[in-house]
């Protein structure tokens, strides 16, 4: 199963036939394995990594450090669950160090993001402070270099 997951993590669009060849299983078995992993929520979704900047979109991404007062009994989880439900929020991590939650949000404009922080995030009772950093240019995302200039420079045939 681990190998199947690794293969799909590299490329979610691999044809089932190709996966079956690599894994030495039948297509039927591979399909079954994938269904089971989806059902168990080990595979959560199949996404496409897109360079929106290159496409011409000017969405704004902000990384926000959030400080919290933990709730008795629930710690940080209950607050994280409130924050994660906003569509604007792409990522939420609980962190060690000088702040508690790392929240990555996307908005259509600076104003959008500013509004979200001021109206939605900072107004949560347990939030004691926020620091917002705007992303200027992405270089590498999820292990992929966005503008990779390396190419195959090998000769066509070599012994």
């Amino acid at each position: 199963m681990r190998e199947l997951l690794e293969l799909l993590e590299q490329d979610a669009r691999r044809p089932v036939g190709e996966l079956a060849s690599i894994l030495g299983k039948s297509e039927y078995e591979v399909k079954n394995d994938i269904s089971k992993l989806e059902k168990d929520k080990i595979i959560l979704s199949y996404n496409t990594l897109i360079n929106w900047q290159k496409f011409g979109d000017d969405t704004v991404t902000a990384v926000i450090e959030v400080n919290l007062t933990p709730e008795r009994e629930h710690g940080f989880d209950a607050i994280a669950e409130r924050i994660e439900r906003f569509d604007e929020v792409r990522t939420v991590y609980l962190m060690s160090g000088s702040f508690d939650l790392l929240v990555i949000i996307e908005g259509k404009s600076l104003n959008d993001v500013a509004n979200f922080v001021a109206m939605k995030l900072a107004t949560i009772d347990e939030v004691t402070g926020t620091r917002t950093h705007f992303m200027l240019k992405p270089y590498k995302k999820d292990g992929v270099i966005l503008d990779d200039k390396e190419k195959d420079r090998r000769q066509v045939i070599m012994p």
Binding site: R154, Q155, V156, I157, M158, P159
Partner: peptide
């Protein structure tokens, strides 16, 4: 293999399974 190299280098859409590296 020189001969095959010459044929291959004139083609644009060649897929090479001929590289030993």
């Amino acid at each position: 293999i020189r001969r095959f190299f010459d044929i291959a280098s004139e083609m644009e859409d060649v897929i090479s399974l001929g590289v030993g590296e």
